[in-house]
C-alpha cells in the first residue's frame, strides 16, 4: 500500500472531540430555544438538542463497543418523529386560533 495512504487510514482522533461537538451543539440548541421568537424555530432548536444528545450516545456506544447505545438513539429517533408530528399539529392548531406564530403573542398560559 502507498505509505501516505496507509498513514491517512491509520490516523485516529480522540472521542473527546465528538463529545465536545455534542456539548456545543446542545448549548446552541438551548440558546436557540431562548432567543428565537418563532414557534417553529423554537421547535427546531429542540430537534437540534435531541440530535446533540444522539451524537454523544453514538460516541459512547463506540467507546464501550456496545450496541445498546445505538439502539437508544434508534428509540430517540422514533420518539422524535412522533413528537414532531404531534408538535407540528399543535402548532397548526395554535395558528388557527391565534393567526400568529410569534411566541410573545401566544402568552395566555404565561405567568
Amino acid at each position: 500500500m502507498n505509505p501516505t495512504l496507509g498513514h491517512l487510514l491509520q490516523q485516529e482522533i480522540p472521542l473527546t472531540w465528538y463529545l465536545l461537538l455534542s456539548a456545543v451543539l446542545f448549548c446552541l440548541g438551548v440558546l436557540g430555544f431562548l432567543i428565537k421568537r418563532n414557534l417553529i424555530t423554537v421547535f427546531m432548536s429542540i430537534e437540534l438538542m435531541l440530535n446533540a444528545v444522539n451524537l454523544s450516545f453514538v460516541t459512547f456506544a463506540h467507546q464501550w463497543h456496545e450496541v445498546k447505545g445505538q439502539i437508544f438513539v434508534f428509540f430517540v429517533m422514533m420518539v422524535a418523529a412522533a413528537e414532531a408530528a404531534v408538535g407540528l399539529a399543535i402548532i397548526i392548531a395554535v395558528f388557527r386560533a391565534r393567526a400568529t406564530l410569534a411566541v410573545d403573542r401566544i402568552d395566555l398560559m404565561k405567568l
Partner: peptide
Amino acid sequence: VTAILAVMATVILRSEDLGVAGL
C-alpha cells in the same frame, strides 16, 4: 447556558479513559 457548557467541557476534558476513533 454558559455554565452548562463550561461544566460539560470540563467533565469531558478531564475524563481520561476515553478512546480514539479511526477509519
